[in-house]
Amino acid sequence: MPGDQNIWGHEGEYPCTPPEKPPTEPGKNPQREPGSPATPQTPHRVQGRTRESMESIKELGASPVPEVKSNIHCLTIVGQIEGHLVLPPQNKATKYEHIIPQLVALEQSPDVEGVLVVLNTVGGDVEAGLAIAEMIASLSKPTVSIVLGGGHSIGVPIAVAAQYSFIAETASMTIHPIRLNGLVIGVPQTYEYLDKMQDRVVRFVTQHSRISEASFRDLMFRTGELARDIGTVLIGREAVEKGLIDEVGGVGRAVNKLKSMIEDWKKGVPLQ
């Protein structure tokens, strides 16, 4: 009889609903064998869900279309890039301890042929941001980044880490010096430490984009552009003119570029 098992309408909404079938047969070890894949991998990344298809046929009279997964993986970097400290919950945060192994999986997975990095970030931790940027830069697969909304501060190295970068017409990138927060000891070493940290960012950006070190430092230490800070905001085309980003464009152009890069990569054309 419908509804006598679950008064909450949908199956599974009530948290204590027992499973209709146990997820694993009793006596069978749920731990998978070492080395064996979690799910059987099919070359076209089709996810077939037999039980749900049967339910769908019974309930709706239609079977769901098998979901064919894309050969492009979309990696979104949003909000603050969380470092070694968990930020208070009002922050939207990108967790590096999840992104870094994910990039390893993308490098290793035969189904993923290209990575699209979508950025809308306000920066965050220097170490975590540079770690993600280095991981993206060292991928052997085609990578394209697109800055939408904002790619500020430590978002700049992540945006330029990809082999080809796009920026939306209205997106902005803030380039400003690194500051120390917390207790600061007033000794020359503090300044030198900060300067070293800044050099890491400057070196990475200048190595992975067309901008020169002098030009990037000039943007970083410019006064009179930001109300509360020194530095510059580059909007859309300005970032391309300065050589930081390769092209102005949206998602359509970024995906097309990635597709053509994948074609070249398959033919054996070396990535730039």
Binding site: Q80, Q90, V122, D125, T174, I178
Partner: peptide, 14 residues
Amino acid sequence: MILYTPMQLELVLE
């Protein structure tokens, strides 16, 4: 930890 962000640190660390 060095936070490199244009957001006000009072807001981030509140």
